[in-house]
Write a protein that binds this DNA or RNA. Sequence first.
RNA 1: GUGGGUGUAGUUCAGUUGGUAGAGCACCAGAUUGUGGUUCUGGGUGUCGUGGGUUCGAGCCCCAUCACCCACCCCA
Length: 425
Amino acid sequence: MEKIIAQKGTKDILPAESYRWQHIEARLKETVARFGYKEIRLPTFEATELFRRGVGETTDVVGKEMYTFDDKGGRSITLRPEGTAAVVRAALEHGLLAEALPLRAYYLQSCFRYEKPQSGRLREFHQLGIELFGAAGPAADVQVIATGAACLESVGVKSVRLELNSIGCPNCRPKYHDALRSYFASHLDELCDTCKDRLQRNPLRILDCKNPSCAAVAKGAPLMREFLCDDCKAHHTAVKEGLDNIGIAYVENPTIVRGLDYYTRTVFEFVHTGAGAQGTVCGGGRYDGLVEELGGKPTPGIGFGMGIERLLMVLEAEGVALPPDRVPDIYLCSMGTQAALLAERVAAALRATGCWAETDLMGRGLKPQMKYANKIGARYTMVLGESEVATGSAKLKRMSDGEECEILLTALQRDGLAAAEKQFA
RNA sequence: GUGGGUGUAGUUCAGUUGGUAGAGCACCAGAUUGUGGUUCUGGGUGUCGUGGGUUCGAGCCCCAUCACCCACCCCA
């Protein structure tokens, strides 16, 4: 029979490595909780229309990267390519924006994009996202960015740089885009082919093209900050002052462009400064027009998405030590049928006290059982045979140093390992 | 969608000018049948990605195809 393998761009998280995920997920959850975020759990698929309207028809994500299909009822369904649009949908559907604001919600979920996989880019990837609704002022931007920084710090990430930009609002951005287009149009023959395409679709992207010729042209290009309206300018300044106020370092990067249409004003990325081409571990920004676009009353919003796979890559690259995986508390070796039954009774009692207790299920001899116990890292072992069945007492062995002590099985079953551990002190 | 790279054991890899395949690690069994780590002995667990072609003979040469990796685009 031919083997079936995992689908392109998907990844198995195996038993030996899942604790790494559990660890960083736990840290991220407790961090966002300190900022007031509660978890929101939403469906994996939504009406395609939600993303067309929310994310934007012209974006790459909607244009060519969505997992879209018709279900048996003829509905157009899409696996979520990002988290924000669905949070807005749910908030409107359940009237959450009519409650006391701000509303804060976080999610930890997989998203799906039909892309060609490479390092740090999968078709199914996992992200932590937070969304804050109702606060229009710069303090909200600062706090959301601070939440991202705290998340990264909580898992031990060091070498990331916060990059900040303002892409303006519907009042001032079009003027800038026009200025940019006309500038680059006047240098058309100096641009690479990719940038000639970008000129219409996304002229901002030309600003950080790696092609030397494009880069030279880009140096003389107008910058967004010269075109920001007074309100956007004041907002941007206040965000920077707010970051200074709480000691969060940033660099301004006028080339940051978020690929989703809903962003306004503040956009930011936490970029890893080490290996790997996909350096953005966290990206987000303000989206003041999104709620209205999805049928709600005008409500400001801001949030970010943090890629868990990329976070793990960064931790790997930095050599951050994660706490070790759990090991069994005790392995009960047994010899013979009666002893095996006794081992199961003892193990059951120990588990009831909270221990991780293991017994032999492979029918191994004593020595292989000991080897196995050692291999899985059991802290204690105990050998049960005919004499232990007869006496009701056995030797408990501490694997780290081989020390042994005699213990009554009834006491062990009643008090668990805690009682036995005292005898080693 | 564009470009580059790689496919041999569970895994990391070696394999000469073409002669039906090897090592380390891992795994299993054992070293006088009641005690792990170290050591020793034994065990290959394989459709050489797949399908064709050339050849007396292909892991190796040719063609096709698939998969994976990496980069661009874009994004988390």
